[in-house]
Simulated scan of single mutants.
Amino acid sequence: MVCRVCCVLRAFHSFLIEIVLLMSKKILAILSEYGYWGIELVAPLTKLEEAGYTVEFITPTGKKAEALPPSYDTTYIDPPLGIAVTTPQAAEMVKAFEASNRLDERINMSEIIPERPYFSVPNFLREFEKYFADVKVAQEKLTEEYAALLVVGGSGPIIDMVNNQRVHDIILAFYKKNMPIGAICYGVAPLVFARDFNERISIIRGKHVTGHCIEYDYHDGTGFLHTDLNMGPPPYCLEYILADAVGPEGQYHGNFGKETSVIVDYPFITARSLQCAFEFGDQFVAVLDQGVKRYGW
Rank of each mutant, 00 (worst) to 15 (best):
Asp217His: 11
Ile269Gly: 03
Glu279Ile: 04
Gly232Asn: 03
Glu145Lys: 13
Glu40Ile: 05
Ala245Asn: 02
Tyr175Cys: 00
Gln290Ile: 00
Ile269Thr: 02
Asp160Gly: 03
Ser273Ile: 01
Gly82Thr: 03
Cys7Ala: 11
Val42Gly: 10
Ala11Asn: 09
Leu274Phe: 05
Ala277Ser: 15
Arg200Asn: 15
Thr54Ile: 05
Lys258Thr: 08
Gln251Glu: 15
Ala189Trp: 12
Tyr186Leu: 12
Gly82Val: 07
Thr46Pro: 02
Thr143Glu: 03
Ala90Gly: 07
Tyr131Gln: 01
Gly52Ser: 08
Pro69Met: 01
Ile171Asp: 06
Thr270Asn: 07
Thr74Asn: 01
Val209Leu: 13
Phe268Trp: 01
Tyr36Leu: 08
Glu115Arg: 14
Leu274Asn: 10
Leu68Ala: 06
Gly156Ala: 04
Thr74Val: 14
Asp244Pro: 00
Ala194Arg: 05
Asp217Trp: 06
Asn178Ala: 07
Val137Gln: 09
Lys141Glu: 14
Tyr76His: 15
Asp196Leu: 04
Leu288Tyr: 09
Ile77Ala: 03
Pro190Gln: 03
Val55Pro: 07
Glu105Asn: 14
Val137Arg: 05
Gln139Thr: 01
Gly206Asp: 08
Ile214His: 15
Tyr118Asp: 14
Leu16Lys: 10
Ser71Gly: 08
Ala147Asn: 05
Phe128Glu: 15
Thr227Cys: 09
Val167Lys: 05
Thr75Ile: 00
Val292Trp: 08
Tyr146Lys: 00
Leu242Ala: 06
Gln165Ala: 11
Phe193Asn: 05
Pro79Ala: 04
Tyr146Val: 00
Lys207Cys: 08
Met109Ala: 04
Asn178Trp: 04
Tyr218His: 09
Asp289Leu: 09
Asn123Arg: 07
Asp289Arg: 05
Val209His: 13
His168Glu: 08
Ala138Glu: 09
Glu50Gly: 08
Ser120Gly: 02
Leu45Cys: 07
Thr222Leu: 13
Phe224Cys: 03
Phe284Gly: 02
Phe280His: 01
Asp160Ala: 03
Glu215Met: 12
Val137Lys: 13
Lys207Tyr: 12
Asp104Thr: 05
Glu115Ala: 13
Glu105Lys: 15
Val152Ser: 02
Cys276Trp: 10
Phe124Lys: 04
Ser32Cys: 07
Lys258His: 13
Leu142Pro: 00
Ile17Thr: 13
Ala243Val: 00
Ile204Asp: 03
Val94Lys: 02
Gly52Cys: 12
Ser71Asn: 06
Leu22Cys: 13
Ser71His: 09
Arg195Ser: 14
Asp217Val: 03
Phe119Asn: 07
Glu18Arg: 11
Phe174Cys: 09
